[in-house]
Design a protein around this nucleic acid. Structure first.
Lengths: 260, 260
DNA sequence: CACTGTGAAATAGTTCACAGCC
DNA sequence: GGCTGTGAACTATTTCACAGTG
């Protein structure tokens, strides 16, 4: 890293790669499972297996955090759990609000994985007055009129949006104006936010579409490979360019309805 | 691309970058919205804005599909909708099964975004006998004993797992054995699958953890910047290395409970 | 003449492979 | 002897910038 010597403070400076950050929760989960089984140490190989990555990547990732392992031995499970938790900011309490208590909002409110990692659902908020006061996951749903007050009182900096697409930007604006600086968006909408506000998007139908792409590809490859090779031919079957093209639909009227 | 001339079949050969595939659904959604408003053509700049990417990236992405634009004009909305849909395999019908009809499974069953893009929920499956026959999203929940028969009868190749983590691998194995080759996994578990099976993972708590990381970072930067600059100082405040380190928690007992 | 399509440059991320340490 | 930590090589992705074209 530093061009010259490998004097100490090479890493740990600043700027953990985004790809690494995205994997830290994975490692944390695997480590937590080991911790519960009272496993004292783990090698990069073992941990990588449990987290579903390869060991070189894992070691590289950890090298951005510091030198937390012991050569010849591996990593101390408890110590790593602590270090990663701290790096991710999970040693503090994060109050979150969920806006939009439909099916998905309710599912999230009930989701154990939130509460178990320092995230506390501070409020459930919905615009529908008939929802107000209803109990969901043991909490009373509050009306969206209260949004600003709730954010303020609870010091909320993370908001989860599970409204229909049409309401998402509006809700987002209010959250941001009230002081929220991180948003997890489940609505099928591109949110516009000022600089300094983070948005992460989870889109269920996008994930399926990506799967469909690969699924189609697989089907096409099978067709291309079958005439030439047997059933279990390994390696790339080098499909003809254009083999994936399907029978040219009569005319393109496809399902193009926007989800709510 | 081809080293020599730019004779035709440079792109369109095979291998659309994964990153591009992941964005196609985004473009498709933006285009669908334009289509509904009967907008005939769109420039890369406009479409990129609507999809939340920059225009160079969008043009590069489209160049992998082919030359579907018109210089000086832009892209024909309907034509692009069709081409992207075809590329993603959405011109055909994809029956999917959802296994694990808890809160999240029910939310997905009700989610409009699935049905609207060629995905058809063929069955809802749960291991709990007391769920069997219950109506969810207008369908009767079926018992997991029927899993293989359902997959087979409906020609299902995509499965969605919304079970608790402990059941996920087992369900996954059965899905794969029954012929499913693409899995969308919502359970907090790393699934092991044979070659040729695709798994995509959606993990709600991971997304929050990533947000928390950045949130913490922001808080630290603010602290570092405040003594020096005013409230609204733009640009990078060039925080001191190490500034992000927090007050060293007393000792690491953190919330380390695994979600179900 | 506005806007696409794309090489080439820049940046980010992954994997290799091995020196160094316990 | 086993296993980490990390430069260096490689691969993927993004961005630039501009030639080409309807």
């Amino acid at each position: 890293m530093a061009t010259g010597r490998n004097h100490r403070p090479a890493n740990r400076s600043r700027g953990i790669p985004e790809a690494t950050v995205a994997r830290l929760p994975l490692y944390l989960r695997a480590l937590t499972a080991l911790s519960e089984r009272s496993v004292p140490t783990v090698s990069s190989e073992e941990l990588a297996g449990a987290a579903g990555v390869n060991s070189a990547k894992l070691r590289k990732d950890f090298s951005y955090l510091g030198s937390y392992g012991t050569r010849g031995v591996g990593y101390d499970v408890e110590y790593l759990v602590y270090q990663i938790s701290r790096e991710l900011g999970l040693t503090q309490d994060w109050p979150v609000v969920i806006v939009g208590i439909g099916n998905l909002g309710a599912a999230l409110a009930n989701y154990g994985g939130f509460a178990s990692r320092g995230f506390r659902v501070a409020a459930l908020i919905d615009a529908d007055s008939s929802m107000t006061g209803k109990q969901v996951a043991g909490m009373a749903v509050q009306h969206v009129d209260e949004l600003e007050a709730i954010i303020d009182t609870n010091g909320v900096s993370i908001g989860v949006i599970t409204t229909p697409g049409g309401a998402a930007q509006q809700v987002c604006d209010r959250l941001v104006a009230a002081g929220v600086t991180s948003i997890l968006n489940f609505a099928p909408t591109v949110l516009t936010v000022p600089d300094g506000v983070d948005v992460r998007k989870v889109d269920l139908s996008i994930e399926l579409q990506i799967l469909a792409f690969h699924e189609q590809r697989k089907a096409a490859e099978e067709l291309a490979a079958e005439p030439a090779a047997g059933l279990a031919a390994p390696g790339l079957p080098a499909p003809e360019p254009g083999a994936a093209r399907r029978g040219q639909d009569p005319d393109g009227d496809l399902p193009v309805v926007m989800p709510a």
